[in-house]
Nucleic acid binder design. Structure first.
Lengths: 225, 225
DNA sequence: CTATAATGTGACCTGCTAGTCACATGACTT
DNA sequence: AAGTCATGTGACTAGCAGGTCACATTATAG
């Protein structure tokens, strides 16, 4: 984590460094990011950089906390439209609000997801961060089972994996398509995009809602002639 | 593509170079792969390398053709269990056979998917390769619609995206989990793993089988109280 | 055996990287 | 005004990168 000297900096200077870092990581990932470029982009000297941060990874870790803080702040300002939502409606709301957040901070999200999901495979350090979000999904599914919205015989771990994959896939897809647009936020909020997201989530939801017995019945019907 | 001198090489030497390249790309991706390491691992000199290949990317492109050739060869040896399969059964067979291939050549597949899906986003050169596979899916879906297996009002592009994402996600998941095992092939073929794949595909399939009108009915029921 | 062509080699070049450190500058204290 | 401490600086080191090239070795032909 950054040293105190960094936090003492005037906000403008700190912002310039953060923005330079976001641009650099979004463009080059963690491994190929160049401290030299970050330093010259943000208008500070090499020595200062190493006075603020231990190294590149330290700076990136700081960006993670920035993302987390901004995201919490964003969700605080948005309340679920209703209190009587079932699990899938809630999940849909979470995904969509997350998507709006992504549109509001596209470069920050791009920088972090690039490192986390692409190089992440090989940086075991990030495994615990992923584990945390999976823990949340696990809880959601268990609660859904208790409420009778998901069949009790559903494999929780598998459902977690499906939901995680699905929400990552949607996020990536939206981010990639959105980056081609002039105004991401507008594009994400458009009826067409919203409907597309609904449809994709519907595919996942409908599969999960089905009972295990249903699966076995259907599956055997088609594999044993 | 490699120069003739490379193809003239004795098979053993060629194999050593290919293996060294696979290991290097699997470990470091394209950008961070080091020709120096490849050269020393495969026991040839720097000069020879540049006599065989234009550069790193040239070598990687060659690996792509190796993968394609091996895959075609592998699928030739495996025939679909039945001729009377519906689209989803065929898709399932394709996915599973592809998975078996991945288990047979885990490092080669890892090397290529690491570059294609992780860094690939930023290497526009690979876009056409992806486009080709999407073209295949598009055809599959159109045929499924003609056969009445998928509702005609389904958005083909969306279905393509879902199937592509889904099959990539499963492949990546299996590859990642499989790499933790001693014997990948055995693990992939185990009843437990096979059933897991079936379940994941079932989620996708069940969502796609549903008609658009079904979606709209269900969707409105829950969003308009 | 000689001449010619093909293949192989590694020292060397330039340019980048992450990280260091002796020194300069500014700000606050006594 | 002098002293002290925090902050800022960029030339410098060591190491690795991709790529080149004059020369060495081997194979083929006459």
């Amino acid at each position: 984590m950054p040293r105190q000297t960094f936090h003492n900096l005037p906000e403008e200077k700190r912002g310039k460094i953060i923005n330079a870092a976001i641009e650099e990581f979004a463009e080059y990932g963690l491994e190929n990011a160049s401290t030299n470029r970050i330093v010259s982009k943000s208008g500070i000297s090499k020595g200062s950089f190493y006075q603020y941060f231990e190294d590149k990874q330290d700076l990136f870790m700081y960006l993670l906390t920035v993302l987390e803080r901004e995201k919490v702040e964003y969700f605080k300002g948005k309340h679920p439209p209703s209190m009587n939502m079932d699990t899938f409606q809630y999940f849909r709301w979470m995904i969509k609000t997350g998507m709006e957040f992504n549109s509001a901070y596209p470069r920050l999200v791009q920088a972090i997801s690039r490192v986390m999901f692409n190089e992440g495979m090989y940086y075991k350090n990030f495994a615990n961060i992923r584990e945390r979000s999976m823990q949340g999904l696990r809880t959601i599914i268990r609660e859904a089972i208790e409420r009778g919205e998901v069949d009790p015989s559903v494999d929780v771990e598998l459902a977690v994996m499906i939901m995680e994959t699905w929400s990552n896939a949607i996020s990536n897809y939206i981010l990639q398509e959105g980056m081609k647009q002039k105004d991401i936020m507008k594009w994400v909020r458009s009826a067409k995009t919203q409907q597309m997201i609904d449809k994709m989530l519907y595919v996942m939801e409908y599969g999960l809602r089905k009972t295990e017995s249903d699966f076995e019945k259907n599956f055997q019907e088609r594999t044993t002639p």
